[in-house]
Design a protein around this nucleic acid. Structure first.
Length: 487
RNA sequence: GACCCGUUCGUCUAGCGGUUAGGACACCGCCCUUUCACGGCAGUAACACGGGUUCGAUUCCCGUACGGGUCGCCA
């Protein structure tokens, strides 16, 4: 057993500073750059359990309530969550709401609902509690004051002319042993001492971030690469507090289709957009996982258990990635295509209602859903498809109607169909199909030539469900009514 | 501007010195088909550039170019 663990230590980054030395020193972790040896290679769950028992993984997602859950943030949350679940560790949600202007109930809710929609549950955090709380920075002022007192006691902090508190930042050269980027060295600089507390009493991000990570026992900081250049200053703080810093893993950013950093206002930037467009949440999770991380297998579909089992920091890509809506949509379709009718109905019904369609579970039989599931990539696509089937008021495609009229007068065709349908034995696919055949034969035209006008008359659309499905779904009365009323 | 990170098909990626450079989305064609889809099959398409190291570089090193990030009393 120990041999396995030793081997693990060699093949991955040391889990902790050795020999109980809590003082982290620069260069203590020699990570050969540009080699794969620094990558996290833990795979066996047995080994994971052993290591975890020695040094339980604690990670956190620390969003700021900006009013939405950004996809970049969601992916950071996902990577942290996967890492925690893979190592049977703890996933903490901490709300960084030190900026009062942003700290609204709605903004907080946007984070919670986004994470919940994706199924990213937190072990400790708001609405959940935990031993290291509170988990909102706005409620941790006393803790920050305590840490600030430590700094002041050591003469490492002072109040400047503007009334702000500054940290005597050593600004020394720092080598960050990053689990993804390798050892990254930042030369010492001569910058003004960093502010840790504003004149109005509120604390600055860098300070509270470090204090909270210490207080919450965070072992691995997995965050966006945009934080990498800030890390040396964070290290200064850890050193000042005499605490061994956590492991760092900076993940590449998500870019827009035009190559720029995806920001708040960009299309598809908010998780809520995927929710309202009716993407399958498991698919979005799946897609996000594959954006900047790879299980190195020639397949694309991974359920969350698959992801948990496979997730390692070593699989994280080095370069930034552009978000591709097409692929996300395709993946979503893949999930719907194989969905069982019952859960599909459960997901669909509230969505249709919210979209303004008057319908019930009874109006969505299994047979219909089995056909529908292959036609949608997201639930919003089901709305126009279903509109004509579940209600009498439905949109009509003017172009399709125009095309129909340009070909021939549809009236005699529809009358012939209505007659054939009226004499049908049962209002079921086989009989209905036969009736269409008879009508076509009687008119001396092909079946297909009859089905297009029929489709237009019944649904107003040139595409959609199979014609017999439409007929069955509408029922004899409504179908015949629409055929005879079409003009 | 300074500092950091990065660079394989349009996009997401596999590749860790010797491969016909693989997969996926998208695209194109064919098949299936009453429509729209689904599905199946096939195809177009990539190692940024220049130097090294090496018998041999997509893989290792150094430059250049390009992209991104950070340099806030925003997080």
């Amino acid at each position: 057993m120990w041999a396995m663990i030793e081997k693990l230590r060699v093949s991955s980054v040391p889990m902790m500073a050795k020999g109980g030395d809590t003082r982290w020193r620069m260069g203590a972790w020699q990570i050969p750059r540009g080699t794969a040896s620094h990558r996290w290679t833990v795979e066996s769950s047995e080994v994971v359990r052993m290591v975890n028992a020695m040094s339980p993984v604690r990670v956190r997602f620390a969003p700021s309530p900006t009013g939405m859950l950004h996809v970049g943030g969601a992916r950071t949350a996902l990577f942290n969550w996967l890492f925690a679940r893979h190592h049977q560790g703890t996933f903490i949600l901490r709300v960084e709401d030190t900026d009062d202007q942003r700290n609204t109930p709605e903004a907080n809710e946007a984070i919670f609902s986004g994470l919940t929609w994706l199924g990213l549950d937190w072990d400790e955090g708001p609405n959940r509690g935990g031993p290291r709380g509170p988990y909102r920075q706005s409620e941790r002022t006393a803790i920050y004051e305590g840490y600030l007192a430590k700094l002041q006691a050591a003469d490492l902090a002072y109040t400047d002319a503007d009334g702000s508190v500054r940290f005597r930042c050593p600004n020394t050269t720092r080598a960050i042993p990053d689990l993804i980027c390798g050892e990254t060295v930042f030369a010492g600089r001569t910058e003004p001492d960093m502010t840790v507390r504003r004149a109005n009493g509120s604390f600055i991000f860098h300070f509270v971030n470090v204090v909270d990570d210490i207080e919450m026992g965070v072992t691995h900081v997995i965050r966006g690469e945009d934080h990498l250049p800030n890390t040396p200053r964070h290290l200064d703080l850890y050193e000042a507090f005499g605490v061994t810093p956590p492991h760092f893993a900076h993940i590449p950013l998500i870019l827009n289709a035009n190559g720029s950093k995806m920001s708040k206002r960009d299309e598809g930037a908010s998780v809520a957009e995927y929710q309202s467009a009716g993407y399958h949440p498991e698919a979005v999770l799946n897609y996000l996982a594959l954006l900047g991380w790879s299980p190195k297998e020639d397949r694309e579909l991974f359920c969350r258990e698959d992801l948990i089992a496979r997730f390692t920091l070593g699989g994280i890509t080095r370069g930034n990635a552009m978000f591709n809506l097409d692929k996300c949509g395709w993946l979503s379709g893949q999930y719907f295509h194989v969905m069982e009718p019952a859960p599909f109905r459960d997901m669909l019904l509230p969505y249709l209602t919210a979209a303004g369609l008057q319908t019930t579970a009874d109006a969505l039989p299994d047979s219909l859903l089995l056909e529908l599931r292959t036609k949608v990539r997201m639930l919003s696509e089901a709305v126009p498809l279903l509109a004509a089937l579940v209600q009498d008021d439905f949109p009509v495609d003017a172009a399709a109607v125009a095309k129909l009229r340009s070909q021939s007068d549809p009236k005699p065709l529809l009358d012939a169909l209505a007659t054939a349908f009226a004499g049908v034995g049962t209002w079921q696919a086989a009989d209905l199909d036969a009736a269409i055949g008879r009508a076509a034969e009687g008119l001396g035209i092909k079946k297909g030539a009859l089905m297009f006008p029929c489709r237009i008359a019944l649904t107003g659309q040139s595409g959609g469900f199979g014609l017999t499905t439409i007929l069955e779904q509408l029922g004899r009365e409504r179908a015949l009514d629409r055929l005879t009323r079409f003009s």
